[in-house]
Amino acid sequence: MGEVIVITSGKGGVGKTTTAANLGTGLSLLNKKAVLVDTDIGLRNLDVVMGLENRIVYDLVDAVEGTCRLKQALIKDKRYDGLYLLPAAQTRDKNSVTPEQMVKLCEELKEEFDFVIIDCPAGIEQGFKNAIAGADRAIVITTPEVSAVRDADRIIGLLEANDIKNPSLIVNRVRHEMVRKGDMMSIEDIIDILAIQLVGVVPDDENIIISTNRGEPAVSDNKSMAGQAYRNITRRILGEDVPFMDLAGQGNFIAKVKKLFGFRSA
């Protein structure tokens, strides 16, 4: 029996889809069987981020409505063993699926997979309700910006109101140099405000844009900082105790020298 993890944030554009793609891929790289479910009906993107857009025949709505069997709608990622994608429908809307149908879908997928990763749409309406309906746990994504943290707080409240206890947090697009200068909230600041458990910190990394351009998740790129962060998160999801990356090491020369002498301002 697998586990259903919903990736959510409230605010759009903070990296839900990228995170879902990287965690799913990361899990398959660690020999877990994982399926990525795009619940952003009408605005699907997980397919392009994964580079699987040309392989779609059936989608989530087809599977739920019985137009096809669930297995027919699952796209096997040939690059990563045990990784599948269930794409969202593009020409329908969020009301095409009900939370009850999502619960049933998740139950079926749990039979087959170790992990069901649900990519949640932005917002708190029907799409969000569908996405969290069958979830066992939630990962909330935020960036170190007031708008994203505020929305994350709202989402945490809604998750708890829907009996999804103890969501964990990923802080995305952290720019260490700005944090050091006091121009970006630090991880500690954000944890202080949101008061939930941290599962990962992903540095702002140009490689993410490059890997998204190519449709290849950064987690499989050994040179990418963000990829390393996602590999760490994947292992933490599996219960390993992985120390958090020292982003300071990636700063400029002065930051490195300061670190050498034990000065750490952030």
């Binding site: 910006e145 007031v146 943290v149 505020r150 707080d153 944090v179 200068k181 006091g182 121009d183 970006m184 909230m185 630090s186 600041d189 202080d192 405000i193």
Partner: peptide, 14 residues
Amino acid sequence: SSKDVAKERLKLVL
């Protein structure tokens, strides 16, 4: 610092 301003504003809005 601007992050302190951000943090304080966030706390109030929350």
